[in-house]
Write a protein that binds this DNA or RNA. Structure first.
Length: 962
DNA sequence: GAATTCACG
DNA sequence: ACGTACGTGAATTCA
């Protein structure tokens, strides 16, 4: 296909249609305009820049150019007086935005392409053709405009950038032919010529829309041929084609993109170059694009990314004058901080200016490696009220990692590093004992980034950390729940500072990666001190921010106090009966082999059942199942999910077998095989990690392994829970569940009398709902009605839709609509609550929980109905799910505290969103059961007083405990 | 590394 | 006109 030999490295050229992208970006923000502090509407600029950046990062073009329409009239205006006449004058905001956009493009060192008398599409089309002729492997015309479809070839494609929730999309020849139902891409012009294009004021032929245009072109091939055969047409259509034939031809001409623009194709001129970082910085600063600046330039100051610029370590460090009293600073000294308060701080509280690294800083990082120095350090530590600290270890796995050093900081810019002998446990233990007075001091706030990790490490050295904690990771989690909270990103965003990458010390990730223990203490010192230093400074930035938005209490009363609770839970672990797992694995394997044989017999061939691709081909191509009702995934593969196979199972036994096979292999590989491998050898237990800063709603999540998704819904799955056992014969497992928390929260928040009454009376809520929705007395609700009502109740919490409900209970959309309507008649306040939730979110652009936890819903006013709908459902769900999370977190803190105060031996070992699991001492069960119930039920009181109920069970394993 | 599927609340 | 219930994590396949 390529006429010339392709270049050695595959060339990838992107040609952007500037105005089309700018208009689209502008209108995307039209409902809730983005305005910077100078009153400039920056929506179009931000949208365009985001699109540009995305394509640069994701697609990594080798060549690129941005085409603008010529300012003056184009040949199309000469040809057709009304051309684009109806398009309103360019909105003022766009006019103001364009100079900025051009500056940004220029700062990226990307050429701007304009040719007098031509529009961008002609320029792009011409260049695309010439690039193809020169042997470019791939050319992408980046535009949302469908006119470009006429230009698509095997190597020239359309790239529709991601937009308002839709993923980016590449349209190739096949897509175009399919979409327009034509045989050659050029016929797009004929289609457009007939149907016209309102936005470009191409008239087309009256009475011909998308459908008719397709049919006619399929039959006649072109506008000209249609006109030639106009006699074959009937009635009004014939009349129209006859009368407007001229207009049709003119429309076709207007829709035609011209490929003879007088412009040279210079490969070198379009080659990608490194951006002018300084210029981008200035522009983003002026436009107040902080997030973009961080994302794009954060770690990207030229010095920061260049591997050719290693950090000259130690060269400029002031030598520590051992034994001198002046080594330690009291708070009276004005140390120079990384984020010294300078100038206006903007909304992130960080000073403007280029990113800085350790080499730019006047810091004092000291090595504390003698008993005398340690003593002196401890003395200073004990005088502080707030100290950040960090642990350096031999690895990230808390169960096996050994301590390498400790760093401390109480004044910005000044920190201390204490090496710990990692290979001599007795000496290490003795050294840590020295610091116990500090760690245990109740009056000193300990500040850390992901401090649960440090607490756990210290716990392995018998150090119990007391006093208030402040975790900067959690602070940021409350400020921006759906962002990431790594220290490096936070330092860059809020302190404009780039910490030394850990890989500078221990090398890149790989087989020979070193650990901190392999690095001389003098080198670790700077890294470790910097972490403590940065963490302290982040605290000073976040605390006022949290106070301002009313989240400081949530942090101090819930998230921070939860940290030691989770550390204890993880430390305790859950005992797993590995031999039971082993037996069950063999049993499952037997079933699997058996089912496999049956599947191959049904299919008449062997194939990889685990490959959705092969499976789809076998089911839908070879066996021809599905009868036209075949679903496809977004990548064009056959969908073979549970939903599809269940439908198929009615008349194709193979579908049911595959579902069963899927279930069994899932159970085997994800649980039965995986869990025993994660059992800690030392104590026979698995130690999960509870992540406190992952979910958008405030829930915890569990990894390594995930113990929050252990099977229970099916017979064979549930069996796995039998392998979760108490630590010894003196213990039992005790499980305490909130009953219907989320529905109770919904009842309470909405104040719905009917639902509240049901809970007050202790009714089964699904039966009660069924009785209302189906208008039958409580005692006449059958299983089917209850099942449907249960689905409705869940649907309510999730922000119900008729379609979703119909899908899930297998009824028509009409029936689903009726059920929902009846529900909202019966539970009018619930409907009102849902509407109010959405309205409040539209105003605030966030939703809140009972304790003020926020979830930002920045798309709530989006013009894209799908995205908006999604965000509206979040506006309903987030406060409910998040409040439930608030409640159980409070309960965990209170129970942990109570167990400790009473010196009980029972240990909390798991949290599963609405359930707490305890490894309970048998003798304590009767004493703790009512207290745990009470502490859970009263952890937080709901505003309207809907009671919370807790069910407790015990047993020899987790299954029995339910 | 993305996509698909499926385990849980 | 369009897509379809909220929130997670892990295993697997495949490009």
């Amino acid at each position: 296909m390529t006429p010339d030999a392709p270049a050695s490295q595959p060339h990838k050229l992107f040609l952007l249609d500037a105005f089309a992208l700018i208009y689209r970006a502008h209108f995307a923000f039209s409902k809730n305009p983005r305005v910077n502090s100078k009153g400039l509407n920056t929506g179009a600029i931000l949208g365009f820049t985001n699109t540009l950046v995305e394509v640069l990062q994701k697609e990594k073009p080798t060549h690129i150019g941005v085409a603008f329409d010529a300012q003056k009239k184009t040949f199309r205006h000469e040809q057709f007086a009304d051309y684009k006449a109806q398009r309103q004058a360019m909105p003022e905001d766009i006019g103001l935005a364009i100079p900025y956009i051009k500056k940004i493009i220029t700062a990226f060192n990307i050429p701007i392409l304009v040719v007098d008398g031509y529009e961008a599409d002609d320029v792009i089309g011409t260049l695309a053709r010439r690039a193809e002729a020169q042997g470019f492997g791939e050319v992408f015309m980046m535009t949302p405009d469908k006119d470009y479809c006429q230009l698509v070839t095997d190597c020239v494609k359309i790239y529709r950038p991601a937009f308002m929730g839709n993923a980016a999309e590449v349209l190739d020849v096949q897509h175009v032919l399919q979409r327009f139902e034509i045989e050659r891409p050029e016929q797009v012009i004929d289609i457009l010529g007939l149907q016209g294009d309102a936005s470009d004021n191409i008239p087309g032929i009256p009475g011909i829309g998308e459908k008719t245009a397709k049919t006619l072109i399929q039959k006649y091939g072109s506008v000209e041929n249609l006109i030639a055969n106009v006699d074959e047409l009937k009635g009004k259509q014939q009349e129209n084609v006859r009368n407007f034939a001229e207009q049709g031809l003119m429309s076709k001409e207007l829709a035609t993109i011209h490929l003879d623009v007088p412009i040279e194709f210079h490969e070198e001129g379009l080659r990608m170059e490194a951006p002018n970082v300084e210029a981008l910085h200035q522009l983003f600063e002026e436009l107040e694009f902080r997030q973009l600046a961080t994302r794009l330039l954060g770690g990207g100051s030229p010095a920061g990314t260049s591997p050719a610029a290693p950090t000259p370590r130690g060269a400029r460090r002031p030598k520590v004058a051992e034994g001198q009293g002046s080594l330690f600073s009291s708070s009276a000294d004005a140390a120079v901080g990384i984020a010294a308060e300078e100038g206006e701080t903007g909304s992130f509280g960080a000073p403007a200016g280029p990113r800085r690294t350790l080499q730019d800083m006047d810091v004092r990082y000291h090595l504390i490696d003698t008993p005398e120095l340690r003593n002196s350090l401890l003395e200073f530590l004990l005088q502080q009220t707030e100290v950040s600290f960090d642990t350096e270890t031999t690895g990230l796995d808390t169960m096996t990692a050994r301590l390498v050093g400790l760093s401390f900081c109480w004044l910005p810019g000044e920190a201390y590093y204490v090496p710990v002998p990692h290979d001599d446990h007795a000496t290490a233990q003795a050294l840590l004992n020295e610091f116990c007075p500090f760690f245990e001091a109740p009056q000193i706030t300990k500040v850390g980034q992901n401090i649960k990790y440090d607490l756990t490490i210290l716990k392995h050295y018998n150090v119990q950390v007391s006093g208030p904690l402040f975790d900067t990771m959690l602070a940021h989690y409350l400020l921006e729940p759906d962002m990431r909270h790594g220290m490096d990103v936070l330092a860059e965003t809020y302190l404009h500072y780039t910490p030394v990458p850990i890989t500078d010390l221990i090398g890149p990730k790989g087989k020979n990666q070193k650990t901190m223990a392999d690095i001389p203490a003098a080198e670790v010192k700077d890294y470790a001190c910097e972490d403590a230093d940065v963490t302290l400074q982040l605290k000073h930035v976040f605390e006022p921010m949290l106070k301002e938005v009313g989240l400081l209490d949530l942090l101090n009363e819930v998230e921070n106090p939860l940290v030691p609770v989770l550390a204890d839970i993880e430390y305790e672990g859950v005992k797993i009966d590995s031999s039971a797992m082993g037996e069950y694995s063999a049993e499952l394997q037997g079933y699997i082999v058996d089912i496999e044989k049956q599947i191959f017999a049904e299919a008449g061939q062997e194939f990889n059942i685990g490959s959705p691709k092969q499976l789809g081909e076998v089911l839908f191509d070879k066996m021809d199942l599905g009868r036209g009702k075949i679903k496809k995934t977004k990548t064009g593969q056959y969908a073979t999910g549970e939903e599809v196979l269940s439908q198929l199972a009615a008349d194709a036994p193979i579908a049911g077998l595959i579902l069963e096979h899927r279930q069994l292999t899932k159970l085997r590989s994800t649980y039965v095989e995986a869990l025993p491998q994660l059992v800690c050898e030392a104590d026979g237990r698995v130690h999960t990690s509870f992540n406190q800063a992952v979910t958008a709603t405030g829930r915890l999540s569990s990894t390594n392994p995930n113990l929050q998704n252990i099977p229970i819904r099916t017979e064979k799955g549930r069996e796995i829970r039998k392998a979760f056992v108490p630590r010894d014969a003196g213990h039992v497992l005790l499980a305490a569940d909130y009953s219907q928390v989320e529905l109770r929260i919904m009842a309470d928040f909405s104040g719905d009398k009917t639902m509240i009454e049901a809970f007050r009376q202790g009714l089964d809520i699904h039966t009660s709902t069924a009785s209302k929705v189906f208008h039958v007395p409580l005692d006449q609700v059958d299983g089917e009605m209850r099942r449907k009502a249960k689905t409705v109740n869940f649907g309510i919490i999730y922000g119900i839709s008729a379609f979703g409900l119909a899908q899930r209970i297998g009824i028509s959309r009409k029936e689903a609509t009726e059920i929902i309507d009846t529900y909202f008649e019966e539970f009018a306040s619930v409907k009102q609550f849902m509407d109010e939730s959405i309205n409040r979110a539209r105003e605030l652009e966030y939703a809140t929980t009972l304790l003020g936890r926020r979830r930002y819903l920045r798309d709530i006013n989006s013009r894209n109905a799908t995205l908006r709908g999604y965000t509206e459902r979040n506006a309903i769900n987030a406060p409910i799910q998040g409040t439930a999370a608030d409640i159980i977190k409070k309960a965990m803190i209170n129970i942990h505290e109570w167990l400790r105060a009473e010196r009980l031996k029972t240990r909390m070992i798991l949290q599963v969103h609405d359930e707490l699991v305890f490894d309970a001492v048998k003798e304590e069960v009767d004493y703790i059961t009512p207290k745990i119930k009470e502490l859970m039920a009263t952890a937080l009181l709901l505003p309207h007083g809907v009671p919370l109920e807790v069910e407790v069970g015990t047993g020899q394993n987790w299954l029995q405990a339910h």
